[in-house]
Design a protein around this nucleic acid. Structure first.
Lengths: 191, 191
DNA sequence: AGTTAAAAAGAACAGCTGTTCTTTATAGGT
DNA sequence: ACCTATAAAGAACAGCTGTTCTTTTTAACT
């Protein structure tokens, strides 16, 4: 009996990521979101409830579909190669765009405790994963023995944030790729 | 003849920094800005023109009055101590608040070329200053000779961005201070 | 003390934003 | 072929936001 929906939730969420990346949360207006997602207004509110709830769903989708592709390198831990894989995937993700999660944290983190929680979990996971990879890499002799694993994990974590900001400023040059080499190079053993 | 103004532009700008830090640019509404700055509406628009122009002025003030206090450590270059001075000043600035400049870049960087320019200049300056301090520190024997100055400068630059994000998430714990030690420690010579 | 130019207070306004409601079209079951 | 339940399209709306206008107050000069 019912008519079949024409919209595809996956595609809607993908488009929404682009809109929120360009204008932020408050800067993105429903008019543009609805137009660019090829959705219709009523369907939108039946499906998602409100702009704020929609943001949470888009953010979850961004973590599952985009960030997790970078994370999977780390979590499928084979040492230094995993860290390199993470950075090249992350650079590809944020190049000329920035990171949606970081942008939303800096815009709404103060006001929205839920966003703050998401941010904290994200950073914790990142640091834990880096540490595991560094331990493995050290066992494999891919990393100097005299570095402190915990400190280095924290450092790598900071780089990720630096890249998220630089992704917006740098356009799509190779700056970030060069920076990755500058960062990971010094970890290697002397010879 | 004229009545003397009661408001103090300095104080207005200070309060505005707080409001923009809490809610971002689009999230901050004129109603709250005017109420919390003890300003009056008409005076506000005569003095600043519009919300957007006001943002630029607040941002300039933030750079001159707050960020530059941290930068002055670097630019009054006496080696490693300057870098440490910078980080402790910066941590104090962003602890529990984040960095206004970084927040505005992530919120508006894509849409507003002027903000993007300000961001690029800021990062360039930061990197150049770090490099100068590292060179000096190396001359003074405060830093290992086998580190690459340019890479390390870039790394320190990334930490700063990491701190800006963490400042929002970490509340006002000592996390950032501990992280600074973890980062600067490994630069020291072995003995 | 009177005058006056500018400041303070806040009412008013136009346009925008998130949300809801109404109407029209259409795919699927009978 | 005819219902019918739901999707699509977009008009409508209430409340908010940035900005301007009007009125009232007040400090300084004559």
């Amino acid at each position: 009996m019912p008519r079949k929906a024409l919209y595809n939730v996956e595609e809607v969420l993908e488009q929404a990521i682009a809109v929120f990346l360009e204008h932020g949360y408050h800067g993105a207006i429903m008019e543009e979101i609805i137009a660019r997602t090829d959705f219709n207004r009523r369907g939108f509110y039946l499906e998602f409830g409100s702009k704020q709830q929609f943001l949470y769903i888009v953010l979850a989708h961004y973590q599952e579909q985009h960030l997790s592709k970078a994370f999977s390198h780390l979590e499928h831990n084979i040492g230094m190669q995993s860290i390199q894989g993470f950075f090249s995937a992350y650079v590809e993700l944020v190049k000329g765009r920035g990171c949606l999660l970081i942008n939303i944290i800096t815009e709404l983190g103060f006001d929205d405790p839920k966003i703050r929680d998401i941010g904290r979990h994200y950073l914790d996971r990142l640091q834990i994963d880096f540490i595991a990879c560094l331990e493995k890499a050290q066992q494999l002799g891919e990393v100097r023995l005299d570095i402190n694993i915990e400190s280095t994990g924290l450092q790598l974590c900071s780089y990720v944030q630096g890249f998220a900001v630089n992704g917006i400023l740098a356009g799509d040059t190779d700056e970030l790729t060069l920076a990755t080499r500058a960062i990971l190079g010094p970890l290697k053993p002397s010879i």
